[in-house]
Design a protein around this nucleic acid. Structure first.
Lengths: 140, 140
DNA sequence: AGAATGCCTAGTAATTTAGTTGGGATTACG
DNA sequence: CGTAATCCCAACTAAATTACTAGGCATTCT
């Protein structure tokens, strides 16, 4: 049960934007080369993040990307959900609609729900600002 | 970040074995047909579970599989780790050895560790016996 | 005008997942 | 004793997903 590169690259890139928050846009190629990623691939991730309102872009020369909101308003969960889809371990616990035809009394479903809730409570409780703070502590 | 069918099928099958614990072996084809799965595929999962000592087999006619330990001694975590590998969301937090070349002060790694710890604390706290108990409650 | 950017869609290569096939070994039962 | 029921194992294949790559258009700063 692994995250894909979308979540991994994406969160790291968002953190870069957070480090630069308030100082104007950063072009994609800068982030891509800092992290040694394909610029075109990262672009796809940023496109999704932009459509969901987490970042905004400035087109044209001297353009680039920046956070659409201050780092304390962006949770890790919101980033990961854009890039990875909902963070449920199985389809049947994504939302509350009954999706599992067979079993009304499915015990494994209870397990999957507990896993889902636990993941979500972690990722929704961490903001980019928290990560910035942790970065400072690591430096010391 | 989804579980594969290995974890999903496998846990459900282990639960079936738990329901039958103490009553002799159940043949694979019974479980496979109950859950409408390929017998041969399920066999691969059981082979792994057997090698890890979670279930044991009786060969020959009237043979089958049974739990190797009572349901209260088998955690969901031990089952999922056999079938899905370690349950870390990224490679770099699987064990304590330094695997990430670049960054000593990698903030995203802290996030991944928190996710990992939270998943593991959930799955290690649920046993097959807990699932049996929950089943009873659902019935009421 | 031209260079530096973002925007978009479609293609493709690599990897992983989810099986399938088929033959062998063991054992209960008639 | 022989046959059917079972587990055991390894190799193959098909399908799906992931991770890019390619390339052209749109916008804007200088």
């Amino acid at each position: 049960m692994k995250l894909s590169t979308r979540g991994r690259y994406g969160l790291k890139a968002m953190f870069q934007l957070a480090l630069h928050y308030g100082k104007g846009p950063i072009p994609l190629n800068v982030i891509a080369s800092q992290q040694d990623l394909s610029e075109n691939y990262l672009e796809q991730l940023f496109s999704a993040l932009r459509k969901e309102g987490l970042i905004k872009s400035v087109r044209g020369a001297q353009g680039g990307y920046m956070l659409a909101k201050p780092p304390e308003k962006i949770t890790v969960g919101s980033v990961l959900r854009v890039l990875e889809g909902n963070m449920a371990p199985v389809e049947c616990v994504i939302d509350d609609t009954v999706s599992c035809d067979k079993e009304e009394s499915c015990v494994t479903k209870l397990v999957w729900m507990k896993i889902k809730d636990s993941i979500n409570s972690v990722i929704d409780s961490i903001t980019l600002q928290d990560m910035l703070n942790e970065q400072k502590n690591l430096g010391k």
